[in-house]
């Protein structure tokens, strides 16, 4: 079971990292990599634990695809962080992907537990 989880769960996560990050950035308005990593772990109650290093390339890809916009901000203590915001095309893409995700989960649940008509 553990072996299965070790392979299946990362695959599921890898295929949905984009939608997870987009949704999180959209909801939080403006956020940065480390905060997102902690937020994903917190909201999923520790279930979704991806390698932290994979989040940053995914954020870069979203930015290069024009779905998010990144900018450096300087904090009062002099530290700099790269914050991300969802662009208009990112919001459109997120809405489409969320709709597909909802349909997909509904369909999968129907297969697992068919509704007797």
């Amino acid at each position: 079971m553990e072996n299965m989880q070790a392979g299946y769960l990362p695959d599921l996560l890898r295929g949905n990292t984009d939608i997870l990050l987009l949704s999180l950035i959209d909801e939080m308005g403006s956020t940065y990599g480390y905060q997102m990593i902690k937020e994903i772990e917190k909201r999923s109650r520790g279930f979704l634990q991806c390698k932290e290093g994979t989040i940053y390339p995914a954020l870069r890809k979203l930015e290069n695809d024009g779905l998010t916009k990144g900018e450096w901000r300087e904090l009062p203590n002099g530290q700099r962080r790269r914050y991300y915001q969802v662009t208009t095309s990112g919001q459109t893409m997120l809405a489409k992907k969320l709709a597909i995700w909802q349909d997909f989960t509904t369909a999968v649940n129907l297969v697992f537990k068919p509704v007797n008509t």
Binding site: K51, E52, G53, T54, Y56, P57, A58, R60, K61, N64
Partner: peptide, 15 residues
């Protein structure tokens, strides 16, 4: 917890 350096670099390259 960050992952293998080579894998992370490859993901950045592909991004």
């Amino acid at each position: 917890s960050f992952g293998q350096a080579k894998t992370i670099a490859r993901l950045f390259y592909e991004a």
